[in-house]
């Protein structure tokens, strides 16, 4: 009896979790312009559309540019924030952590409104730069958290050991602290990239027609008309997520064998 309840609820929930994507994504290869089963045949035609039609390709390029820019800036901002916060006393850490993490809990729409207005007033609205700036605020907390976690996990004795052998503060930081916190930075960089690459809401407020990102283009065509290219985009974005998880897994494994 208990087995039946357990398995039936588990199977139902699992199905609900995985089925939508598993059912829909294969339609990217369907040789028909209707998104229905049974499939009419196998084709790469919609991929061709994606890689040749200007709005899609251009927005993919925009997305990559924005995500890379965000990754670099967020890594710098979040990484420095974490290292600086680590050096502060207990209360300083509390206050600074609250500040650096807080963008996570602010609804994206609110951030979007605030940034669209403020960036417009600063005269940087609309472009690639404003998207990187906005996504940096969304991504820096994740970098901050992952770097902070790896710094906190460091054994303080290691730094003392290095000091007892004559290493200066800066040399210790370079040779001991930084290499050991590396997985934290790498994880943070991945988080930053994927956060920016998948972000829609804030980008909707900020992007101009020239700086549209892939999610924006997907969002507008979903409101507009359903075509198989949409599923192609969904498939490509899912693949990016899979790659991301694999990379994340690798990093965690490496971190574990070290410590």
């Amino acid at each position: 009896m208990s087995r039946i309840i357990y398995w039936s609820s588990l199977v139902f929930a699992f199905f609900f979790l995985v089925a939508p994507l598993l059912i829909v994504l294969p339609l990217a290869f369907n040789d028909s312009s209707f998104l229905t089963y049974p499939m009419d045949g196998f084709t790469f035609r919609w991929f061709e559309v994606f890689f040749t039609a200007p709005p899609w390709l251009a927005s993919l390029m925009n997305s990559l540019k924005v995500a890379l820019g965000t990754m670099i800036v967020a890594l710098l901002v979040g990484g420095m924030a974490a290292m600086g916060t680590m050096l502060m006393g207990k209360w300083g850490q509390l206050v600074l952590s609250a500040l650096f993490v807080s963008p996570i809990v602010i609804p994206s729409v609110v951030l979007g409104v605030a940034m669209a207005y403020a960036f417009g007033r600063m005269g940087v609205g609309g472009g690639y730069l404003s998207l990187v700036m906005a996504h940096t605020i969304l991504a820096a907390p994740l970098v901050f958290l992952s770097v902070m976690t790896s710094l906190k996990g460091l054994d303080p004795e290691l730094d003392r050991a290095a000091a007892s052998m004559g290493a200066s503060r800066w040399y210790r930081f370079q040779t001991v602290t930084l290499p050991l916190a590396m997985p934290g930075f790498a994880t943070g960089a991945l988080f930053a990239f994927i956060t920016s690459f998948d972000e829609v809401v804030v980008a909707l407020f900020l992007a101009s027609p020239q700086s549209q990102t892939l999610p924006i283009t997907l969002f507008s065509s979903l409101r507009d008309r359903l075509e198989p290219t949409i599923v192609v985009v969904a498939l490509l974005l899912s693949i990016v997520s899979c790659l991301f998880i694999i990379a994340l897994n690798r990093l965690q494994k490496r971190g574990e064998t070290r410590n």
């Binding site: 054994d155 004795e157 290691l158 003392r160 050991a161 290095a162 007892s164 050991l180 410590n259």
Partner: peptide, 11 residues
């Protein structure tokens, strides 16, 4: 200085 937990650099 030899530390109780050795404090060898794992990397």
């Amino acid at each position: 200085l030899v530390f109780q937990g050795y404090a060898l650099f794992p990397h």
